[in-house]
Every structure is written in structure tokens, then in C-alpha cells.
């Protein structure tokens, strides 16, 4: 329990730095893949500082409050996860957080922001089955939804849950808003959805959104690591290596795919979920 509190505090303090740093690496690698020099590694932090120093402009007065709620609930999700509580509960809180993001998007009634928010909602529907199934997978393998117990049984679950792992990595692309599933917001302006859900977020609001995204990414990477940890140092090293590998994979996919229509995203994701996590689930349940 005490260790749980330490992890939770470490998450609160370190996650934005880890997340921001990963974002910097992301930009650098993406730039190199496109044969550009790219921004400095710490550019994301410079951006955040700059955004915080700008004048607060807003389209709707309530957006800040909704984004703040989104931010805090995201923190709660991560804290619950790293302090070792129920993984299903973590994802329930996460989806509540995402609901507030949706509200922050639609409250302006701005066309691009609304379209982005609607698509964000479709994305939530798209990845939720895979997320819930992953939780079920952990439960089947460890006999508990409790992160603490899952992490401390002394075996890596990847061997029993390979299908769930594939499904989770697949939906990670959606969660991290990477191409080809970046339907709710995009890296670049001048596209059909401008900046999607973030179009109307200015200065501090955008900074808040960015930091929340970093927290979210670290949490998601935590879930990835949960597949590999087994209590030993080697397990930790392997999980960190996989975590970096998965992150690189996301960057690679991001750079070599064009945006997909949301219809295709929904259908493909559900099919993949069914044939990876679903099949794995059936096998696990039959073996039991």
C-alpha cells in the first residue's frame, strides 16, 4: 500500500515530464523520418510555457472548467492505476474523463470543434470493447482486477494474453490520436477538420489539454508494461524495452499512414478486437 502511494506521487510529479519528453522524441523521430531536422527535444515544454504566458482567449466560458475536470479525472485514473487499485475502475474513470473532453469540444458549437468532438465520441465507442476485454483478460489470468495483485504474481502475462496485447496496441493508436486513426484532431492545420476537437482551445486551455494528453500517454504505457512486469528486474527492463518499442511503432505507423474514415476505423478495430482479444478470451476461458 505504501509503495502504491509512492508510485502514485511519482506519477503525478513525473508523468508530465516523461510524457513531454516522449512527445519531443516523437517529433524528432517523425522529423527524421521525413528528412527534416526537427525541433529540439525540449520543444514541447517550450510550447507549454509559451501557451501559459499567452493571453487567455476563449470562445465559451465553460470550456476551461470542462477541461479542468478532464484533467483532474485523468490524474485520478493514473493515480488509481499506479497505486494499484482496480483496473476496470481505472478505465471507467478514464471514460468519464473522456466524456468531459467531449463536452469541452461540443460546448462551443463551433463547426470544426464539434466535428472533432463527435469523432472523438466515435473513437471512444471504437476502443472501449478492446479496453474492457483487456481488463477481463487480466482478470482471467491473475484472478483479480486489482493492479497490485496483477503486477505481483511473479509471471509475465504476455504469454497468456498475446491477443489482448495486440488488441490493446491496436487501439493505442486511436487513444494517442495518431494517424491513421487521428480522426478527432490532427497534427496539421489546413485539413478537412482543421484541428478538430482542439480547434477552439486557446492558450492555457490548449496547454491543459496537452499536459492531460501526456498524463494519458504515460498511463497507457503503464498498461502496456503491466503485460510484462513480473516483479523481477528483468521483467521491468523488458517491459520498459517493450514500452519504447511500442512507442516507436506508434510513431512509425503515424508517419506512414493517411487518415482513415471513421467508418473504416470502427469496423476494422472491432474486427481486430474480435479476432485477437476475442479469440484469446475464448481460449483462456476454455482452458480454465
Amino acid at each position: 500500500m505504501n509503495m502504491g502511494i509512492v508510485y502514485a506521487i511519482a506519477y503525478i510529479v513525473l508523468a508530465p515530464f516523461v510524457g513531454g519528453f516522449l512527445d519531443g522524441v516523437d517529433r524528432k523521430i517523425s522529423a527524421r523520418m521525413q528528412r527534416r531536422v526537427g525541433p529540439p527535444l525540449l520543444q514541447p515544454f517550450y510550447d507549454i510555457v509559451k501557451l501559459f504566458n499567452k493571453e487567455t482567449i476563449s470562445v465559451d466560458s465553460s470550456q476551461t472548467f470542462l477541461l479542468l475536470t478532464y484533467f483532474v479525472l485523468m490524474l485520478v485514473t493514473g493515480v488509481m492505476f499506479f497505486s494499484g487499485s482496480d483496473i476496470l475502475m481505472c478505465f471507467f474513470v478514464l471514460s468519464t474523463a473522456a466524456t468531459f473532453l467531449y463536452f469541452a469540444g461540443v460546448i462551443t458549437s463551433s463547426p470544426y470543434s464539434s466535428i472533432g468532438a463527435q469523432r472523438e465520441l466515435i473513437q471512444m465507442m471504437t476502443y472501449e470493447p478492446a479496453v474492457l476485454l483487456t481488463c477481463v483478460g487480466f482478470y482471467l489470468a491473475a484472478g483479480s482486477f486489482n493492479v497490485n495483485e496483477i503486477a505481483s504474481t511473479g509471471t509475465s502475462y504476455i504469454f497468456r494474453l498475446p491477443g489482448f496485447f495486440v488488441a490493446f496496441v491496436f487501439i493505442l493508436t486511436i487513444k494517442m490520436r495518431k494517424s491513421p486513426f487521428d480522426t478527432s484532431t490532427s497534427h496539421h492545420m489546413h485539413q478537412e477538420l482543421v484541428k478538430g476537437i482542439t480547434t477552439e482551445m486557446g492558450s492555457k486551455n490548449l496547454a491543459l489539454f496537452q499536459i492531460t494528453e501526456w498524463y494519458e500517454n504515460v498511463f497507457l504505457m503503464g498498461v502496456i508494461c503491466l503485460f510484462f512486469v513480473n516483479g523481477s528486474i528483468t521483467g521491468l527492463v523488458i517491459s520498459l524495452a517493450v514500452f519504447l518499442l511500442v512507442y516507436f511503432l506508434e510513431i512509425l505507423i503515424d508517419n506512414c499512414c493517411a487518415r482513415m474514415k471513421w467508418q473504416d476505423m470502427l469496423v476494422i478495430t472491432w474486427i481486430v478486437t474480435f479476432f485477437t482479444a476475442g479469440v484469446n478470451l475464448v481460449i483462456l476461458m476454455v482452458i480454465r
Binding site: 493571453e55 487567455t56 482567449i57 476563449s58 470562445v59 466560458s61 465553460s62 476551461t64 472548467f65 479542468l68 462551443t108 458549437s109 463551433s110 463547426p111 470544426y112 470543434s113 482543421v194 480547434t199 477552439e200 486557446g202 492555457k204
Partner: peptide, 12 residues
């Protein structure tokens, strides 16, 4: 957030 000073702008 109610206390924050904001400038309101038009949506894009």
C-alpha cells in the same frame, strides 16, 4: 474557472 479573466473571441 469563473474567476479567470478571459477575452472572448469568435469561433473558427
Amino acid at each position: 474557472s469563473r474567476k479567470m479573466r478571459k477575452t472572448y473571441v469568435l469561433s473558427y
